[in-house]
């Protein structure tokens, strides 16, 4: 069982990323596409945190345990993930604002119809 465990988190991250990309590519509604982009972003968080994990370790936060008393996981990847989640949310808001502008100017949020309008 544990040989599968060695690679399972990375495979789940790859699967979620590819699913998000599939949704992004075949979306017929721009708001749905932004949701799929959020799924792609969460795949990168899963990969980052899986890389930093250590068996039997705990979080490197020493407010309630003695430093050095227990093995800890890698804090650097957690710092990356933490800031990226919040910044990702504001970038999603910016994308949704763009979708609103498209809906206002072209009256549709379907990417295929947008292509015909320009032709």
């Amino acid at each position: 069982m544990n040989t599968a465990m060695h690679v399972l988190p990375y495979l789940v991250a790859v699967y979620v990323f590819l699913t998000g990309c599939y949704g992004l590519a075949t979306s017929r509604n721009l708001i749905h596409a932004v949701g799929c982009l959020a799924v792609c972003q969460s795949a990168t968080y899963v990969l980052l945190l899986a890389v930093g994990y250590r068996d039997g370790a705990t979080a490197p936060v020493f407010s309630d345990i003695e430093p050095g008393s227990r093995p800890v996981v890698d804090p650097v990847v957690q710092a990356l993930t933490l800031t990226d989640i919040v910044v990702g949310a504001t970038v999603t808001a910016l994308l949704l604002a763009l979708v609103l502008q498209i809906a206002k100017r072209h009256g549709t949020v379907d990417p295929d119809e947008l292509r015909e309008l320009r032709g």
Binding site: P9, V76, L82
Partner: peptide, 27 residues
């Protein structure tokens, strides 16, 4: 490298630097 491995060079140094500066939350 296998999931849950022991080799985290950056992590160990980051934890050490954080403890030197008396910061409990390494992140």
């Amino acid at each position: 490298p296998a999931f849950g491995g022991r080799w985290h060079p950056y992590g160990d140094r980051a934890v050490q630097a954080s403890l030197d500066r008396h910061i409990a939350n390494t992140i």
